[in-house]
């Protein structure tokens, strides 16, 4: 079981790091949501299923929805995008 804990901890660290440094907005928020889901599994490992439920529903789900909404809104405010050349 120790292996699972270490993998969960490493996954949380890597996901948080990627969410903070990735260059595009949308993948960053998706990484943040996945990070929240990994944390909720960590809460189960810490024998706190109540917190796991709250973290998955509120910490990852609703916060993620709010962030995605804000990112989409702010990007829509930008002017006409150039042609899809990249």
């Amino acid at each position: 079981m120790q292996v699972i804990d270490i993998l969960l901890g490493l996954a949380a660290i890597i996901l948080a790091w990627r969410a903070l440094v990735v260059r595009e907005a949308f993948p960053a928020v998706v990484l943040f949501i996945v990070y929240g889901m990994v944390l909720s599994i960590a809460w189960v490992r810490l024998q706190a299923p109540d917190v796991a439920l709250a973290e998955a529903a509120i910490g990852a789900g609703l916060t993620g929805a709010l962030l995605l909404e804000a990112v989409g809104f702010l990007e829509r405010q930008w002017p006409e995008a150039p042609e899809h050349s990249a």
Binding site: Q2, D5, I6, G9, A12, I13, A16, R45, L46
Partner: peptide, 14 residues
Amino acid sequence: LSTEAIFTLTAVVV
């Protein structure tokens, strides 16, 4: 390492 030790380190790093 116990579960809580591993997640303590995780929390500090994150």
